[in-house]
Amino acid sequence: MSTEAMNTEQNKSDAALDTAMKSWQVPAPSPWLQTRATQNIIAQVNASRISAWPLAPLRLGSAFAAFLVFGLLLGAGLPGADLPTTDTQTTTQVETDIADATLDGDTSSDISAAETADDADLIALLW
């Protein structure tokens, strides 16, 4: 069989298959299909709304609580508007103390001397 004849045969069988496949029609669905599907979905939506209803006050309550907490935080922040200044002062005071300590010289040796003196007094007292 020549290539052309094979192609012709192939096309014929393709066409026959095409026709046969197209002949398979889908029967119309039952008339209730759409109605029932619609009703099912409506029932689902209603059910989800009903089940969500008891939670609504809780949601409102949690929203209110969140608002309160936010308000408290905001309220607590307002009178303390000068807090950063206080912090700065504290920091400055600490820095000054450190500087004074440094100017005094070796603070650790001072402490050791005091401790040694205390120890000597204690030994004297015991003896």
Partner: peptide
């Protein structure tokens, strides 16, 4: 539909019921 719009649900079903059924068949 999620918000409970029945007309949207009906339209959605009408739009897709035939295709879904046809493919299933």
């Amino acid at each position: 539909s999620r918000a409970g719009d029945a007309s949207a649900i009906a339209l959605l079903v009408e739009r897709h019921a035939d295709t879904v059924y046809r493919i299933a068949f």
